Each structure stands twice: as C-alpha cells, then as structure tokens.
Simulated scan of single mutants.
Amino acid sequence: MEEPVRPTSAAVGDALRDVAGLGGFFVLPGTADTAGPRRAASFADGFAERAREVNRRFGTSEARVGVSIVHLGLAARLWSPLLACTVLHGIVPDLRNLEWVDDTSAIRLQRSPEGRPAGELPDMVTAVYEQVAAPLQELEDTFEVKVAQRLLDGNAASALVGSAAVLLRARPEARSAVIRLTRDLLNVGRLVGTGSITGPDLTFRRRSCCLLYRAPNGGMCGDCCLSGR
C-alpha cells in the first residue's frame, strides 16, 4: 500500500494556528511561530521541576500529587490541538519532539510542524491515540516517584474527554465527529476501562483519582471517582 501524501508543513501549521484560536490548551506552536532562546533542559527535567512547583503551590510534600497533576495538564495540552486538527482539518499532527515554553506549563514543537491526512490512514483512531500515548509514556519512564499506571491512564482519559467537551462547545457543528472519535479512542490501548461517558455533552466519570484531593489546597475534579454525583 502506498504511503498517503503528507500535508505540507505550511498546511499543518495553518491548521494548528486555526485551532489555537479556540484558546487555552489548544495552542501548540511550532518553531516557526516562536522566537527567543530555547530551553537547554530536557523535556523530562522540565516536567520534574513543574511537578515540584505544583506541590509547592498546593502545599503538599507528596511527590506523586504534583507528578499526577502536571501529567494530567500535559495530556490536555496534547489532546486538545490533536483532536481539533483531526476533526476540523482532517490532519493528524505529529506530536513528537516537544519542549516547554520558557518557564510556563505551555508546550511547543521543537521543529516545523508535520502531520498525516486523517482520512487516508488505515487506522486513524490508533494513529491519533499514539500521538498522545507515546510522549506520555516517554515521560512516565523517567518519573522519580512511583505512580499507579491506571491512575496515569485515567489522567489521559480525563484529559481526552475534557478536551473533546471544550471542542464540542466551541464547534457544535462538528458534534458527531467529536463524539465518535472520543468514544472510539476510549476503546484503544491504555484508555480502555478508564471511565465512562455519562451524558450527551461528554460528561465523564473516571475510575481512578488524580490525587488532587490529597493536597491541603486541592479538591475534587468534576469527573472524580470519589465525588458523590
């Protein structure tokens, strides 16, 4: 089978810039969109420092709390532009080779953006899943503290459905495609069995907890398995 013709870097960049207009976690610039000095620290080192900062902010010394919260936020920053580009532009962007933006929790690509045509991939759902699963696994292999695997899987699922719900509200005309892709992704790889969609607008109940409740300044997330709803 012939390899599908890849969209140009310019086309992928245009798609990423368009979905960045949705705000927040949908922003994922490439090197052509950035200026200034590049960070010397590795992506993994940057993650560890951000996890420690979360612990300081929430007043806890339990290292796995910070690790889980930053992991959850990072998953949302991966899923959001990925889902939006796939559904709205038919492009699955390549999310390898990431770096932190300065001292923030934002991320960017280390190179000009690349991607593949969603409609021509033999298994588009798995291809989308792998774009998030691979960088998360790479980071998880470097964690200095043990965090339950299913907790991390639940983080990825929670971020997926949360990102999809935001996209659904922003682009209601894409409702069917957003819901279908989200449900399909929850049946792939480590996302299987992590939780259930509980409503038509992608409300979600996960089967694990991100541990935020364990911090003195924390609380429970809306999809937490420990909440009473």
Rank of each mutant, 00 (worst) to 15 (best):
R64L: 11
I91C: 05
P37H: 15
R57M: 14
L88V: 02
E99S: 13
R77E: 05
D45W: 09
F58I: 10
L83T: 04
V67G: 00
S105C: 00
V65N: 06
I91V: 12
D102W: 00
V87F: 07
P81T: 11
I69F: 02
E62R: 13
D45G: 13
A40D: 15
I69H: 01
A106G: 00
G36A: 10
A41V: 14
V67D: 13
R50M: 08
T104Y: 07
G46Y: 11
G90F: 04
T60S: 15
A63Y: 00
A75M: 04
N97M: 04
G90M: 04
I69S: 07
A75G: 13
W79D: 01
A76H: 12
T86N: 05
S68D: 12
T86C: 10
A48L: 15
L98H: 02
L78E: 11
L82K: 06
T104L: 08
S80K: 08
T104A: 04
V101H: 10
R56T: 11
A76G: 11
A51I: 01
G59Q: 07
R64M: 13
L95N: 05
P93Y: 13
D103V: 05
R96F: 09
L98Q: 02
A51M: 06
R52I: 05
T104C: 04
V65E: 08
F43S: 04
F47H: 10
A84Q: 06
T60M: 08
G36T: 04
N55C: 15
R52L: 14
P37I: 08
R39K: 12
I107D: 02
D94S: 07
S105E: 08
T86M: 04
T86W: 09
V70H: 08
A41T: 14
R57D: 14
V67H: 13
R96M: 07
F58N: 07
E53T: 12
L72M: 15
R56S: 14
D94G: 00
F58W: 11
F47R: 02
D102S: 13
V92Y: 09
V67Q: 12
D94Q: 06
S61C: 00
G90P: 06
S42I: 03
S42W: 10
T86V: 08
P37C: 10
A84C: 06
I69C: 00
H71V: 02
L78C: 03
A76P: 03
R57T: 15
R50Y: 14
G36V: 04
L74Y: 09
G46V: 01
V70I: 05
C85E: 06
R96N: 14
